[in-house]
Amino acid sequence: MYRLRQGLRLRRGPSETFWAFDLESGEHYEVNGTAFAVLEALEGGAELDMIVVTLADEYGKCEDTVRADVAELLEMCETEGLVTREA
């Protein structure tokens, strides 16, 4: 189970731009709409499976494809310390 780190703030910018701000390090990240949806769902406490099903339905994509893409995103986020993985 992944959780968003507490010091991370998600913000929508103008014209479909999305940002994540790390209040502890001062680093900031530009994310696309899909990644923003994933991080926002994590912030709301959603489980990975639910996020995948929701995105696959919303975009009309195969769940396996979405799951692989989301897993790749979360690995990057974990490397950057933006999310934590809980047992």
Binding site: E27, N32, M76
Partner: peptide, 11 residues
């Protein structure tokens, strides 16, 4: 909607 692979880029 058009699907975009989730992406994050450090600034």
């Amino acid at each position: 909607k058009t699907y975009e692979k989730p992406a994050i880029k450090k600034q």
